[in-house]
Every structure is written in C-alpha cells, then in structure tokens.
C-alpha cells in the first residue's frame, strides 16, 4: 500500500514539475492553471498540517469526516466545498488560510491515496458481516 502511494506520488511529482514548474515562473496569472493540477507532494504535508487527517484519517477514509477516497470531486467542486462545507462538523477553510493553489495540492494528494478493497473481496469482512447479519 505504502509503495503504491509512493509510486503515485512520484508520478504526480513528475507531472507537476515536468508540465507546470515553468508556469510557476509566470507568477499569479499561472495560479489558476497550477490549481487545476496541484502538487501531491506538497499536498501530503498540508493534508497533515491543516488537520484534514484529523477527521478524515491519514488514509483519507477513516474517521468522523466523510470518506474522501476515492476522490470523485473535481478540483473546483472540492475547493468550493472546503471553503464552505455548510455543516458545523467540517471546519471551513478560507482563502486566507489555504489558497486555491494549496487546496489543489491537497486535492492532488488525496487523489493519490489508495482506495480500500471492496468488502466482498475481504473474506474476514464477509465472515463478520454474515455473523452480524444473522
């Protein structure tokens, strides 16, 4: 699992630096383009620093927050949600706290997180489910 996510991170890094690094030199105008892709490496650190892990788990799917993996939201929808989740359970993050570009990084990182196997593919879970549902 760890190696999978590392590999994904590497790919993401290459993508980001290969395609977008020169764009960053263009300054603010390029921000929205950057925001489209995001840097998963930077996002990983911010996922922890900005407490996303606290409610969504290091896995992005364990905890009181909703499951973020697999990340099905587009970057724009993701950013809009995090800006104003519309619930007291999930704190809101303003642009002062996390810029669009930073949120894109976090989004890119979440996309690298491996999904869980399906319950039907885990014999122990099947057994537990059968027992519990007797």
């Amino acid at each position: 699992m760890l190696s999978r996510s590392l590999a994904a991170k590497e790919i993401m890094k290459k993508l980001v630096f290969g395609i977008l690094a020169p764009a960053s030199a263009l300054g603010l105008l390029a921000v929205s383009a950057l925001a489209q892709q995001g840097d998963a490496g930077r996002g990983k650190k911010m996922f922890v620093d900005y407490s996303c892990y606290a409610c969504h788990g290091f896995s992005g799917q364990n905890g009181p927050g909703r499951r973020l993996v697999p990340m099905k939201m587009a970057n724009v929808a993701f950013t809009a949600y995090v800006r104003s989740p519309g619930t007291n359970q999930m704190p809101s993050y303003s642009a002062k706290v996390l810029t669009d570009a930073q949120l894109a990084d976090i989004w890119a990182y979440i996309k690298t997180l491996p999904d869980s196997p399906e319950a039907k593919d885990i014999p122990l879970v099947q057994q537990l489910k059968a027992e519990a549902g007797k």
Binding site: M1, L2, G57, F58, S59, Q61, N62, R67, P114, S116, P117, E118, A119, I122, V125, L128
Partner: peptide
C-alpha cells in the same frame, strides 16, 4: 470495516 482495510497507520 473494509474502509481503510489495508491502511497504514
């Protein structure tokens, strides 16, 4: 229980 089954931590 399957959610995060293989996760580390």
């Amino acid at each position: 229980a399957s959610v995060g089954w293989n996760a580390s931590p």
